[in-house]
Amino acid sequence: MIRRHLPVLVTLAVFIVGYLICLAQFPSFASTRVIGNLLTDNAFLGIVAVGMTFVILSGGIDLSVGSVIAFTGVFLAVTIEKYGLNPYLAFVLILGISALFGAAMGFLIHTFQIPAFIVTLAGMFLARGLCFVLTTDSIPINAPAYGQITDIAFGLPGGGRLTFIAMIMLVTFGAGIVLAHYTRFGANVYALGGNRTSAQLMGVPVGRTTIRIYMLSSFLAALAGIVFSFYTSAGYSLAATGVELDTIAAVVIGGTLLTGGYGTIIGTLVGVLIQGLIQTYITFEGTLSSWWTKIAIGALLFAFIVLQRGLSAASLRTR
């Protein structure tokens, strides 16, 4: 029982220790302002990481999410600013387009048995390319609706703010947890990651589930893109490069096995927060280059993959 939750517990311990270290050095880490910002700054990463967790749980990978985020931003900027589309209608449109995009990738992966890596790599180039087709400039979004949405926030005691986009992220995590652990779809995702052939023999609808997984991932990437556009108030073709890798890192640090079948959504939340914490620490420190974030993430990622290898080897031995 404890072994089963060990990766998540280790992640949680890393977060708590990290937080305490930050707190010891900078007492203001205890303020709701810092915590609120931590959630807001990492909202888009958290949202896309929920989708990525489902993908990795099923034994797949989705490299297209960063490009989908950028495409979403560019699409919104162009349709709202150039063509005067209602922002809310634009949101619905881009969510639908992205869901179709993901469904198409899932369809290809399942029907032709092509590795997800290849299909989503192609999807990554395609979505990034489409950004440049729409525009090569960074287009600011000045629609009034954007101002209204970003103004929504709950004041927290101590001067912090729980922003609307942070709330979207938390709701996404809540929905993800329910979907993963309390629905048949969730069980099917774990089943695919456990053993695809067995799952098929046991009557799991493999094709339908695969398509839905990638559909969900692209849908959440578009949602993350919308949130990202609130955050930056602009759409830019080169935005969110490498976010797919940050996302995979957050999922793995969150205790999900890259080979699929084992992991939790809540772990991913902690994984995202650890990345945010390192970023915040480096900002507070002031003298360190922000690239130190990458180095710290790299070291953590390595440590977690070694831990996972060790755990799976240990569980094989006891069988």
Binding site: A187, Y190, N195
Partner: peptide
């Protein structure tokens, strides 16, 4: 040919 990562109950009822 079952799923080692799912619970016994899920294996019976998936």
């Amino acid at each position: 040919n079952l799923l080692p990562n799912l619970s016994v109950a899920e294996n019976l009822f998936i």
